[in-house]
Computed example of a mutant assay.
Amino acid sequence: MTTTSHAATAVTPLAPRDRRSARRLLACGLLAGPVLLGVGLAQVFTRDGFDLDRHALSQLALGPWGFVQIVNFLVTGVLVIAAARGLRGALGPGRGTVWGPRLLAGFGTGMLIAGVFVADPAFGC
């Protein structure tokens, strides 16, 4: 029976400049959720006839003020992708080092796509 040994991979610490950069990018991820929900809820409360029980948040992209929600989706997507980049730089070797940032970037890409392709009108929107 042949056994193989796995060599321990040494984690090289990030340089101070790289750590600051990674922290800034990760801070973008902290801003993404409050920006998306804050701008979305501000529109919900100011748009006549919009009801969260009947309408999806993406339907705010319709109508004369729809550009606000489109920009909201685009900004949120960029913030999430920046956070994915920061996460990639901040993680050491391990299982989630590759797929964690990739999945987060995929979500950010989905937000960009939601900003580009507007929802269909439904339920009075």
Rank of each mutant, 00 (worst) to 15 (best):
F73H: 06
V116D: 04
R95P: 11
L112D: 02
V116T: 12
G94H: 09
D120K: 07
G66D: 07
V98M: 09
F50K: 02
D48P: 10
A84Y: 00
C28V: 07
F107P: 00
T2L: 10
L79M: 12
G92C: 07
L52K: 06
L25T: 04
T12F: 03
S21Q: 09
M111P: 00
L62C: 10
N72L: 06
G49R: 07
Q43A: 07
V11L: 11
L31K: 03
A61D: 04
L52D: 05
L36P: 00
L31F: 13
G106N: 06
R88P: 00
R19H: 13
L79R: 02
I81V: 14
S5L: 14
A90P: 01
R20V: 14
A32M: 07
A32L: 09
V118D: 00
D120E: 13
A119P: 02
L62A: 07
V44S: 02
D51C: 07
C28A: 15
V11T: 15
M1T: 14
I70R: 10
L36M: 14
T97E: 12
W65D: 14
C28P: 03
L25H: 03
G29E: 06
R24P: 04
D51Y: 11
G115S: 06
L52W: 10
P64L: 08
P121E: 13
G86P: 01
C28D: 03
W65T: 15
W65A: 13
W65K: 07
P34L: 11
R54E: 12
S21A: 14
D48G: 03
L26M: 15
L14V: 06
Q43P: 04
G63T: 06
A114L: 08
L14D: 02
A56L: 14
A119D: 10
V35W: 12
L25N: 01
T97Q: 15
L31D: 05
G77N: 05
G115A: 06
T12P: 02
A56F: 14
F107N: 01
I70Y: 00
G89I: 00
L52Y: 06
L41V: 13
G108A: 09
L31V: 14
G77Y: 00
G38R: 07
V80W: 00
G124W: 09
G94K: 08
G110H: 05
L26D: 03
G96H: 12
V98I: 13
T12Y: 03
L87S: 01
H6G: 10
G66R: 06
S58H: 04
W99R: 09
F67I: 15
F123G: 04
V78H: 01
T9E: 15
L14P: 01
V80H: 00
A32Y: 01
